[in-house]
Design a protein around this nucleic acid. Structure first.
Lengths: 366, 366
DNA sequence: AGGAACGTTGACAGCGCTACCAGCAACGAC
DNA sequence: GTCGTTGCTGGTAGCGCTGTCAACGTTCCT
C-alpha cells in the first residue's frame, strides 16, 4: 500500500512541500533554519504551511534527528510554593521557544532523582534542570556524561556539573541572624521542617552565626522531617518555648513556619516583636501584610527559574553564557516582626549576587 | 551503511531480542502486553532487558504506533496554590503508569487555551485534562473531534465533552452564605479577585443567596480582575468597608483574600467574629491555624486531580468509568471566624458529591 | 483420525521526518 | 576560459519501533 494511505485530514511535511512546489527536505529546512532558504522558497513554504495548518510531528522529528526538544526539570516537590514560583519562571521562559518542559517530582529523594534522571536521559532531552547540588554519585556521573546542557538551581556550590544558578542558603541564614543580633536579640531559636539539604544549610548558617557569637545552644534548635506547614510552625514553636521559655527571637526556615509562629504568639498573647522577634525565609507575598508585618529573607525564585531556563535554552542553541555560575543573592527584608525600633523600612541587607543586581526592590512583589 | 552504525552504547530493542534469542517483535510485545508471551520467553526478554539496561525509545514508539503516552494538562495558572494541589494529584496518579504529563498554562485566557489545544492535539496525546467548562466554540469542537479521552476538571456543568470532575462553585457559595445567615449575619459583603469563570460562579451563588433573602445590595460586592493575593484581600476589604461600614460579614472568594481581610481587621482592631465574620474558600492549610481560626469551604483539590488522572488513564486503557461525571462536592468548615456561638466543631454542611456520590448534578445553574 | 480453534511467534513494511552527501547554478579569481 | 567556491536544493537511506497478517505448533472436539 502506498503512502497515500494516510487519512486525508493529516498534513505531513510532504503535503506542504508539494503545495509549495519544493522538495520535502527544503520544507523541513524551513522549519529548522529558514535562513538557509532563498527568500522566494521561504515565503512559499511559509504560506503553504499556514494554508494547510501544518503542525510538525514531534515524534518523527525526534526519531530522525536523534534529539528531542524537551527540557527535563527535576524538582523535589510540587506542594511547596517556593517551587511553584521557580516553575512559573521556567515555564514563562520556555514559552515562545521551541522547547517544552517535562516535569518530574523527586519527592526529596535522591534515589528517586537518580531513577528519573536515567529515564530522562534515555530520551535525549535538549537540556536538563535539576534541583540542588546533592546528587548521588551515580546521578552525578550520568549528568556529567550527558551530552546536553544542564543547570543546577536553588543553590550554589563548588563543582557545578555545567551551569548553576541560586544563592547561598548558608549566607542567607547568617544574614538573618546578624540582623537579629543587630536588633539586640541573643536567645534566638531555630525552627525547621522537612530538613532537605537547603534547609539543612540554613540551619548550618544559623549554627555558625550563633557559635561565632558564643550564643549557640542545642536546645534552641527544633526541627522535624515532617513536611512544612503553618500549623507545624505553631507546634514546633510550642516545643521550642517549652525547652527555652526565655527565647527572644525565632528564625524560621520558611515563611509558612513563621506565620504559624506568629499565630501561636497571638494565641499565647506573646507580643511580636516586643517579647519575641520573628524572621522567616523566602519572603512570600503574605509576609508583607501580616500583623505585624513579618521580616523575611527575600529569594528570587521566579527569576531563578526564568534565568535558569533562559540560560539553558541559550546553551542548547550554542550560546553558552559567559558566566556559568550565577549567584542571585538574597535580601533581608526587615519588617515589624523583628524591628526593635518602629521603622519599617531601614536599609536592607543583601548578599550574594543581589548586592549588585536588582538593587532597590520594593518590599512587596507580584 | 548498515544498521550497526549506531554507537555501541545504545541498546535497542533488537539487541534485547538478540540476547533473549527472540525476534524484535516478540521483545516489543513483552513491553506492551507481556501476557501475550509464553512464560519462558517472557522471562528471557525480561532478564535480557534488565541486563542491557534497555530503555525504550519513546519517539520511535510514538511514531510507529501513531499515538503517544502523553497526557496533556491545561491549567490556567501555576501561581495559584489551588492548582498546585490539583497538579500534585495528577502527577501522583500518573506516577507508576506509563503515561507522562505535559503541562501547559493558559494564563486564564481561553484563546491561549485554544492555541495550546491545537498544539497538543497535533501530537496525538493519549488523553487530555482541561480546566473548566468555558472553552471557545473552536476549542469545544476540537475537543469533541479528538480521538482521546478527555476530563474537564474544577467544576461540573451540563454537556461534558467526555468526562468531568469537580463541584458546583455556585452551590458552594450559596452554602457559605446560608451558613452566615444561620449565624445571624445579614449585611454580608463579597470580596473577589481575578474573576475567572469559577470565581464568577461563586459570586453568582452569593448574589442569588442574598437576593433570595432580600438582602442583596450592589455595594456589598467588591471585585477586581487583578490576580489574588493576601495584600489584595486587605485592600478590597478596605474598599468594601468604605462603601458599607455596617457590614457584619465577608465572604471571600478564596482563602488568601480571607487572610488579608483577617489581617486588615486586626490592623483596624475590628473584632472577628464579634464585629465581622469571615468566610474563605478552598480551606487551605493555614485557615485552621489562624487566630481566630477561619471558616472556609473545603474543596477536594488533590483528590480531584488524582481522580481525574486515574479516570483518564482507565479510559485510555479502555475501561471507561460507569459514571463519566463526578461531583466531588464541598464542605462548609465552620471555625471561629464565623461562629457566633463559641463551639468550633458543629456539624459541617456539605454539598454535591460528598452527600450523594455522583448522582444527578446538584442545583447548579447555567 | 481429521479438522477447527487457539495461542504464540515472526516477516514485512512503514510511521514522518532529517542526516548526509551529491548536484547544480551563479559567481569571482586567475 | 577554466577552475574553484559558495549558496541553495534534492535524493537516498534510515531513525527504532509497532501494526498487520501469515505461519506455526498444540490442544480439543467430533
Amino acid at each position: 500500500m502506498g503512502r497515500k494511505r494516510t487519512k486525508s485530514g493529516k498534513i505531513r511535511l510532504a503535503e506542504v512541500a508539494e503545495l509549495a512546489g519544493v522538495s520535502p527536505i527544503t520544507a523541513s529546512r524551513f522549519f529548522r533554519n529558514p535562513e538557509a532558504l532563498s527568500v522566494a522558497k521561504r515565503t512559499r513554504v511559509e504560506s503553504a504551511a499556514k494554508e494547510l495548518g501544518y503542525v510538525p510531528n514531534l515524534a518523527a522529528r525526534a526519531l530522525a534527528s536523534q534529539r528531542t526538544e524537551v527540557i527535563g526539570v527535576l524538582i523535589p516537590s510540587l506542594t511547596n510554593n517556593v517551587f511553584s514560583d521557580v516553575l512559573r519562571g521556567i515555564y514563562d521562559a520556555s514559552e515562545g521557544s521551541r522547547y517544552s518542559i517535562q516535569l518530574s517530582n523527586t519527592r526529596y529523594s535522591i534515589l528517586q532523582e537518580e531513577k528519573l534522571l536515567r529515564l530522562f536521559l534515555a530520551q535525549k532531552p535538549a537540556g536538563l534542570i535539576v534541583t540542588g547540588i546533592d546528587q548521588t554519585a551515580e546521578s552525578r556521573a550520568m549528568l556529567e556524561a550527558a551530552d546536553c546542557p544542564i543547570v543546577q538551581i536553588m543553590e550554589i556550590g563548588p563543582n557545578p556539573v555545567d551551569m548553576m544558578i541560586g544563592f547561598s542558603h548558608y549566607d542567607a541564614a547568617r544574614a538573618a541572624i546578624a540582623h537579629l543580633f543587630a536588633q539586640g536579640h541573643r536567645k534566638i531559636g531555630f525552627v525547621g521542617a522537612r530538613m532537605d539539604p537547603r534547609v539543612q544549610r540554613r540551619l548550618d548558617g544559623y549554627v555558625s552565626a550563633m557559635k561565632d557569637a558564643g550564643l549557640f545552644e542545642q536546645r534552641f534548635v527544633v526541627t522535624t522531617a515532617t513536611p512544612t506547614s503553618v500549623t507545624l510552625g505553631g507546634a514546633l514553636f510550642t516545643d521550642l518555648l517549652a525547652r527555652e521559655p526565655d527565647l527572644d527571637a525565632v528564625f524560621c526556615a520558611n515563611d509558612d513556619l513563621a506565620l504559624g509562629v506568629l499565630f501561636e504568639c497571638r494565641r499565647r498573647e506573646i507580643g511580636v516583636p516586643e517579647q519575641i522577634a520573628i524572621v522567616g525565609f523566602n519572603d512570600l507575598e503574605f509576609m508583607a501584610s501580616a500583623v505585624p508585618t513579618l521580616t523575611s529573607i527575600r529569594t528570587n525564585r521566579y527569576e531563578m527559574g526564568k534565568t535558569a531556563a533562559t540560560m539553558l535554552i541559550e546553551a542548547i542553541e550554542g550560546r553558552r553564557p559567559e558566566q556559568p555560575v550565577l549567584d542571585l543573592g538574597f535580601k533581608v527584608i526587615e519588617r515589624q516582626s523583628s524591628s526593635s525600633r518602629h521603622s519599617d523600612n531601614r536599609p536592607a541587607v543583601s548578599g550574594g549576587g543581589a548586592a549588585n543586581k536588582m538593587v532597590a526592590l520594593p518590599s512587596s512583589h507580584d
